[in-house]
Design a protein around this nucleic acid. Structure first.
Lengths: 187, 187
DNA sequence: TTTGCTTTTTGATATTTGTCAAAAATTATT
DNA sequence: AATAATTTTTGACAAATATCAAAAAGCAAA
């Protein structure tokens, strides 16, 4: 919980009142490798904070699993599309390792926004950061070669390569597993 | 101005007070084809609402102009990365047509957030929509073929194809102009 | 440690897309 | 209307990546 609150106050400072409200709003849960936080077709009712562990988001396309993101310690996790629109998710969220998470429901989030403007303010700032991060990833994905993407990943997020099977990384980068294997052998 | 306020209240309803504050915060400007809203290296100090006209964002890579987004009527335009971080922009924003815009400064936006929580609330919701939109575009860009991307564009945003030179569309889709030309000839 | 299961690598080949150069078509300017 | 400038198309070829199949390596369970 301490980690979660620290992470939140990195975005913006919070009053004691707001901190207290947040403390009472998250519930701790513990899940195991291969468990699902969300399955395709379900509506995402919860936002999770990943204190420990690793998750991946994937969807099924032509009988294949396409992993399109990973989350690790201190990340917020959910199907944002489903959580925001309350429509069925197209993706699955699965644990790649045993994980400790803090869980909050959509309704609780909405209530917190109503009761504590400073929390909505904080989330507005968090959204900006998340938006920029997505924009960067998008530009990279579109305009860099597979080798450049791998180098980037190696330099900036090498922990991903150590904790995640190669096949997942390949689809995360948008390339085939064989190509990634060949690229890697050249380094 | 009426259009701008309508567009805003599509995200969330606003009180008379907030509407009035907004009315006093935007300034109308008129610019011409090939003018720049922002050049690479500048810090984006303004957010624009495009009432009429069309803009593109592009950056320079290996001596080429890479167009990575377009904006048309009723879109908000800026280099979000630069506007949010107040760091120099990597992209240029140029008018593709004569345009009528409503302009607001970063400081004014910040002040409005402080004075009217409902405006920050509205923007929080707007961010969610923008985030989802970017996510969709990202997933498409990464996992669809050039032909599928063109078909999508044709079905969902055919106005883009009519108003924008082919070369810009090609780099928007992340493919070469020659490839796009060949795809198009097959339809 | 042996056996079975999963993941990764390797080889051969096919497909997609890019690049370069030139021609054709379109648009703008005088 | 003629000329110039820009944009789009076409062709030939090269490069990058995907696909399929099989071997090798790694890991887990009995």
């Amino acid at each position: 919980m301490k980690i979660l609150l620290e992470q939140l106050t990195n975005y913006a400072p919070l009053s004691e009142v707001a901190l207290h409200a947040l403390k009472n709003s998250f519930e701790k849960i513990s899940l195991y490798k291969n468990d699902y936080l969300l399955k395709e077709g379900q509506i995402s009712k919860h936002l999770y904070f990943l204190e420990k562990g690793a998750t991946r988001g994937y969807y099924n396309l032509d009988g294949k699993q396409i992993t399109h993101w990973f989350n690790f310690e201190n990340d917020f996790v959910t199907s944002f599309h489903s959580f925001i629109t309350q429509k069925p998710a197209v993706e699955n969220i699965q644990l790649m390792e045993h994980a400790v998470l803090w869980c909050i429901s959509k309704e609780t989030v909405t209530d917190l926004f109503k009761q504590h403007h400073e929390i909505e303010h904080l989330v507005r700032i968090a959204y900006e950061k998340y938006y920029i991060r997505l924009e960067e990833r998008f530009v990279n994905a579109q305009f860099k070669t597979a080798t450049e993407l791998y180098e980037n990943l190696l330099q900036q997020h090498s922990h991903i390569l150590e904790r995640v099977p190669l096949g997942f990384v390949a689809s995360y980068l948008g390339i085939s597993q064989e190509t990634l294997s060949r690229i890697r052998s050249k380094f």
